[in-house]
């Protein structure tokens, strides 16, 4: 055991314990640490926004290089600040409209291509997809199961008709696939959460208390 004398490691360690204290019950140490986190994280955010975004992309081109058209970006950006002036607060809708407009536009072809066309291509029954499993003749079976699974899952989410007859059967098969999918998601979520805990103990036992390397 070789406890560190580095004051920053001690600060990090004590803050870690402040958060862990929530496991016993909510308390002032946890609240202190929680508020400190939000405060410092936003200070970090502000630093990079000014030094690395507004500086090189607005202040330098406009005020140093004299590119006058950057006044438009500056003016429209400043409209965000008018949110705090009640009489003209509606002007904040202009920069929001520009941002939402571009994003919603750009997302349309991206979604069609990545989430619909490519996913359909990977689901349909083609010789290329059979071979993609690298499983010999089993590839055909895997592809058929996948195809049936996707179709049945979709049928489960089709609510315009009562789930009776053929739709009743397919939606029941769909539920099986959905449950297995959720089970896999749960299994992996366990790994994620446990990994984060391991990470914290690696810090406490390592750099702080020097019990492990």
């Amino acid at each position: 055991m070789n406890i560190t004398s580095d004051p920053w490691i001690w600060i990090g360690g004590l803050l870690t314990l402040c958060i862990f204290s929530f496991l016993y019950k909510d308390n002032p140490f946890y609240k202190f640490a929680e508020h400190l986190f939000v405060g410092v994280a936003n200070g970090y955010f502000l630093t990079f926004t000014v030094h690395r975004v507004l500086g090189p992309n607005l202040f330098v081109p406009l005020f140093v290089q004299g590119r006058i058209w950057y006044v438009i970006s500056l003016t429209v950006g400043m409209l965000y600040i008018l949110r705090f002036v009640p009489r003209v607060s509606w002007l904040v809708r202009i920069p929001i409209a520009v941002t939402i407009g571009y994003y919603t536009g750009a997302v349309i072809p991206a979604t069609i291509q990545a989430d619909i066309i490519r996913q359909i291509q990977a689901t349909i029954l083609t010789p290329q997809n059979f071979q993609s499993w690298n499983a010999g003749s089993s590839g055909i079976i895997w592809s058929v199961i996948l195809f049936v699974g996707v179709a049945c899952t979709l049928s489960y989410f089709y609510f315009s008709r009562e789930h009776k007859g053929v739709l009743g059967v397919t939606s029941k098969i769909g539920v099986i696939f959905i449950m297995v999918g959720f089970g896999a998601a749960f299994g992996y979520t366990v790994m994620a959460r446990v990994s984060l805990l391991i990470g914290r103990f690696q810090f406490i036992l390592g750099p702080w208390f020097g019990i492990i390397e």
């Binding site: 997302v107 895997w142 699974g149 899952t153 979709l154 769909g174 696939f177 297995v180």
Partner: peptide, 27 residues
């Protein structure tokens, strides 16, 4: 590879189509 992808892909289609409809409505 298979049951998980099948269920998630079915859900993805639904989300993608819903998202497209919302995007068009916004524009």
């Amino acid at each position: 590879d298979i049951p998980n992808v099948a269920s998630k892909r079915g859900i993805t289609f639904g989300i993608a189509l819903g998202g497209l409809a919302t995007s068009l409505k916004v524009i």
